[in-house]
């Protein structure tokens, strides 16, 4: 057999061995990575039902959902009017209040500052909404960022009213 041909076949054999070996290494590494992802029991707890019958207008309750606080505020008519009156031009992250609160009386919002994850304080700051004590972000009564380092409005989780008094988050 000519020298060259032998070499070629040998190279193919080694390449195949390396390639198959690499696939195996990948297949072994994946479980070791995936084990750190949320497990089945965590995923199953992804929704929470909250009874809001006792919340009066002008009050906020905070509930825990996926380990994070969710603010549920029953807004007064004045607050709703104020939230709706803001012009989109003033906003760093323009979003209509109607898009954030399906039922204008209820604002359901992830109580996590979009800057670095602290929990903002209720009814503080320059816009009658929330104020994050960590790095001074001001949010309005619709949870929209108005001043400070946070890049976006506070997040609205997926939720729905199961009945008039019960909100299901997630």
């Amino acid at each position: 057999m000519p020298e060259k041909e032998t070499k070629k076949r040998r190279d193919f054999l080694f390449t195949a061995t390396y390639a198959v070996g690499a696939v195996g290494v990948g297949a072994v590494v994946w479980p070791m990575i995936d084990q750190m992802n949320p497990d089945a029991s965590v995923k199953a707890l992804a929704s929470t039902e909250v009874d809001v019958s006792t919340v009066n207008p002008g009050n906020t309750i905070t509930v825990l959902w996926r380990g994070k606080p969710v603010f549920i505020r029953r807004r007064t008519q004045d607050e709703i009017a104020e939230a709706k009156s803001v012009s989109m031009k003033e906003l760093k992250h323009p979003e209509k209040d109607e898009d954030r609160a399906k039922n204008p009386e209820w604002l359901v919002m992830l109580g996590v500052c979009t800057h670095l994850g602290c929990v903002p304080l209720d009814q503080k700051g320059d816009y009658n909404g929330w104020f994050c004590p960590c790095h001074g972000s001001h949010y309005d009564i619709s949870g929209r960022i108005r001043k400070g380092p946070a890049p976006t409005n506070m997040e609205i989780p997926e939720y729905k009213f199961v009945d008039a008094n019960t909100i299901k988050i997630g």
């Binding site: 040998r10 054999l13 195949a16 061995t17 198959v20 070996g21 696939v23 195996g24 297949a27």
Partner: peptide, 16 residues
């Protein structure tokens, strides 16, 4: 099955 395939490949590589 995978391990057997790789074993065979490694066996022939070793012989080479």
């Amino acid at each position: 099955v995978y391990l057997i395939i790789l074993t065979v490949l490694v066996y022939f590589s070793m012989k080479k």
